[in-house]
Design a binder for these strands. Structure first.
Lengths: 208, 208
DNA sequence: GAGTGTGAAATTGTTCACAGCG
DNA sequence: CGCTGTGAACAATTTCACACTC
């Protein structure tokens, strides 16, 4: 199986969200048209996306909701739990530590780190903030596949390097800088300031 | 001036971040190579992106840091303040109300709303939660260009429709559904669950 | 008939390569 | 001589259109 583009994977995620809702409602099959409407894509694109991984629809009928949902979960690598560590116990870090969406999708926040001595040892939502200097030792003892970077921009790349060297294979980056990582390491960026600037641009240059 | 693609605008945002840092360090000019390294793009792409809006570089020298920064702020529509309202006082909404990155970039959170009677009237970081039923009346009295949607998925589209009808022209959407809006309304999505699933996919299908 | 699966066409986005200016 | 600005080549993505199956 070749590598699907990140934008395709994002859409798969949206399809799955819709399928889970349909599953709950007891709907048996859905057509590409319905999936498309919900995911903001075209029906043709839905079919292309799905056919990339095989053909699990039935012509004249559509896609079986439970079958397609199961297949997408498998493709996305869900259906298992991941150990996640959180770097940075500032505003963003503490908000994330309390975010129920992580655990709901199988991502368990196991530890939170910071460099500030004033924060180390304080309690953040069930977790005691640990000294960031200990990250490597901790990961050597109990590995984690995913780390969330919620540090200031200036510290993000150095921390990413350390984490990758310590065996972390996926980074969720909240710092407003793109991270350079070796191949084989996955990075997703969440950059709210950037999204705001996109909106600001949209306000200034309205579509006709 | 034509419309630049959202992906171009995102890169402009990254360029600006680097320029602001260079400005603070007193650097006078930067070359496309330096901008590219920082924004995770190619030098050619930086030049293409910038030339789209005019030519403000000097051949053999590079781009004047203060000039280019000023121009990018203008293009992005920064350098003014926006009134922002926040819909949803749950986990995400309250975290956002406390987020300093909004004000830092000129976005002032003026009000927060929720439908739950238990939340209405409670205090969230300087603001008293208001009844979501009042949104239209409030906007009629004091308009806001931007609204942040931090409601459950099921409520998001209906709320978006109401906000647009009430004159809101840009939406920052934290609900995990794409929003349908009329042309002329800007939408940016922030979807953490989706980013996690992209990471999960990346872990399952590592690049060579 | 309804709706998938898929090559081929259209569009969009990126990189190349080099002329031209400071 | 270095670095921008840009048309032209290239690559990726999206849409079209239709044969095919249930």
């Amino acid at each position: 199986m070749r590598e699907a583009a990140a934008t395709t994977v994002r859409r798969l995620s949206l399809y799955l969200r819709f399928l889970e809702q349909s599953e709950a409602e007891g709907v048996a099959t859905v057509a590409s048209t319905a999936l498309a409407a919900r995911a903001g894509a075209s029906p043709a694109q839905v079919r292309k996306d799905l056919s990339f991984f095989g053909s699990f629809g039935r012509r004249g009928v559509g896609y079986s909701v439970p079958l397609l949902a199961a297949r997408l979960r498998e493709i996305l690598g869900l259906g298992r739990r991941y150990r996640v560590i959180l770097i940075g116990a500032g505003r963003v870090g503490t908000a994330l530590a309390a975010y129920p969406g992580f655990a709901a999708r199988g991502f368990d926040v196991a530890a939170i780190y910071d460099v500030a001595p004033a924060l180390v040892g304080t309690r953040v939502n069930e977790l005691i903030v640990r000294d960031a200097a200990r990250v490597e030792a901790d990961l050597a003892a109990v590995p984690a596949a995913i780390a969330v970077i919620a540090t200031p921009a200036a510290a993000a790349q150095a921390m990413a390097d350390r984490l990758v060297k310590a065996g972390v294979r996926a980074l969720l980056n909240f710092a407003p800088v793109p991270l350079a990582v070796p191949p084989g390491v996955a990075v997703s960026d969440v950059n709210m300031a950037l999204e705001l600037e996109v909106l600001s641009y949209g306000l200034k240059h309205p579509a006709p």
